[in-house]
């Protein structure tokens, strides 16, 4: 089974974000990055399927040179080769544009399965995978938390809302978007890290026109307005804050 895993590099969850001067995006100059959380789970699931059923795992990512870190890490964990869609940081494609570019980059690959995380932790559009499936004419399932590929087709467990689940069967090839927590993610071994150095990374330069790349345009970003007037307690002193909080919960909120 040949599996393509789509992985995105996003700002580190703990990074302190600053907004750039013209308020169009965050300041990226000294930002630390990591693999998008649910994409890490998509990789893990594809490696497990390969171990069970044989085949090949190809990781595909888009972005500037820095995204090589995602590729190297995925190859070290066990992916067989990679496709790097080289794109400038200044171009932030809409989900449709991103899906179109990916469709072009993988058109000769003919995978049995394409997997991605269910959404990115930066833009959270939650649709690039589904649009890609439509562009490639594939059936899809989103928010998948279990994959059974032992039969002719696929049987996948989808998460619905409020603790409900549902199994779907569908033919291969197909596209799945994976929910975080589907399995425990492995670490790269030293052997894996060494082996990764010899693995193929194919670079693709997409033909993109910045004007057609965006069907929705971010005009401005800013920090959200507070919905509540938060009383901050302790002023950096944890003990004092805790004492004030206990008192407020008793006298103001009347809960204790």
């Amino acid at each position: 089974m040949k599996i393509i895993v789509l992985m995105k590099q996003v700002a580190n969850k703990d990074a302190i974000l600053r907004i750039n001067k013209d308020q169009t995006w965050i300041e990226e100059s000294d930002l630390s990055y990591e693999v998008n959380e649910s994409d890490g789970y998509a990789l893990e699931e594809s490696l497990r399927l390969k171990e069970k059923h044989g085949g090949e795992v190809v990781v595909c990512t888009m972005g500037a040179a820095r995204v090589k870190a995602v590729i190297k890490d995925a190859l070290a964990r066990g992916a067989d080769r990679a496709i790097h869609i080289v794109a400038d940081d200044s171009l932030r494609p809409s989900p449709f544009a991103a899906a179109s570019i990916i469709a072009g980059a993988i058109k000769d690959e003919h995978p049995d399965l394409i997997m991605s995380g269910l959404q990115s932790d930066d833009n959270s559009y939650a649709q690039t995978g589904v649009i890609l499936a439509e562009l490639l004419g594939l059936p899809h399932a989103t928010i998948v938390i279990e994959v059974d590929a032992s039969g002719e087709g696929l049987r996948v467990k989808r998460e619905l809302e409020s603790g409900w689940y549902q199994w779907y069967t569908m033919p291969k090839p197909a596209l799945l978007t994976i929910q975080s927590g589907i399995s425990q993610i492995r670490y790269a071994t030293l052997k894996g890290i060494m082996a990764a150095k010899k693995k193929e990374i194919r670079e693709v330069t997409p033909q993109m026109d910045a004007n057609t790349a965006s069907h929705q345009k971010v005009t401005k970003i800013y920090f959200p307005q507070k919905q509540k007037q938060t009383q901050f307690l302790g002023n950096g002193d944890a003990k004092a804050g805790a004492a004030m909080l206990a008192d407020k919960l008793r006298t103001e909120a009347r809960i204790i």
């Binding site: 920090f223 959200p224 919905q227 009383q231 804050g241 004492a243 008192d247 919960l249 008793r250």
Partner: peptide, 30 residues
């Protein structure tokens, strides 16, 4: 800057490993 503070009535900016035991003690006292 954590978004949780946007909807919080009371906030403590600090290390939870200091705040939790301190708060436990304070509540116990009350």
């Amino acid at each position: 800057e954590a978004p949780i503070f946007d909807i919080a009535d009371y906030g403590i900016v600090g290390d939870i490993f200091e705040v939790i035991p301190a708060l436990t003690e304070e509540v116990k006292k009350l």
